[in-house]
Amino acid sequence: MSRILLSIYFAFVALYLLTPLLIVIPISFVDSRFLQFPPESLSLRWYRNYFEDSDFLDATILSFIIGVPASLIATTLGTLAALGLTRTRFFGKGIVYALMISPIVVPAIIVALALFLLFAQLDLIGSNFGLILAHSILAMPFSVLIVSATLEHFDTTLERAARIHGAGPIRTFWYVTFPAIRPAVFASAIFSFFISFDELIVALFVMSGQQTLPVRIWQDLRFEIDPTVAAVASILIALTTIGIGLGTLLQTRATQRLKQK
């Protein structure tokens, strides 16, 4: 009985979370010039429009140019931080951990404002490099969380076994530790990429002129609402779902593999 109730509850929560998407996806297939729900007739014209609109394509490319390096930086730093935090005990470790996680907790608008003020000083406003740094800050907490979750299950005796049998610290990491956490690191890279790829507020503050995909969508919504936005949004939803799904799969597998032992 309680199982059935729980299932119904779950269905409601899932529906609640998915409703906006369930509306936006049908809208992207309309044939009319206006956002229309439910659509009266279906077509792919707004998808075609997206692939023919150079502004949208440039914005998409820029999002990749920002997202890939941001993900690499966030994942590298996040993995190193996770290693450091799970391996050591020191006074104030809790505070360091909280600071690492804080970009998740602090409202995005505050982070955006702070970065805007800082970047204005450093002359980084409008530069790709600036946005890459900003996005890696936003993504790093997730990387720390994902990789430390896996490291909790990693048996450090394996590292001792590698060391005593002739591997120095770097080769021990490369041959023993990294293979064990590799799925989690990949998962973290995927998550980090999509955090950057979906990010609007910071991009609005620190980019001037150039537009990432979310910024482009935002501009579009403000000035000329046509269903291209819905098509782009649907593509973004599809990409994100696949990416995050893959990331979650990788991470679950990593944790289970280590737990098995």
Binding site: L158, A161, I164, A167, Y175, P179, R257
Partner: peptide, 20 residues
């Protein structure tokens, strides 16, 4: 002397074979 330069073999209680 660093661990890896001591030239010692070791068998651990948990075997500690590299799982991959």
């Amino acid at each position: 002397t660093p661990i890896e330069k001591r030239n010692i073999g070791m068998v651990f209680q948990s075997y500690s074979l590299f799982p991959h």
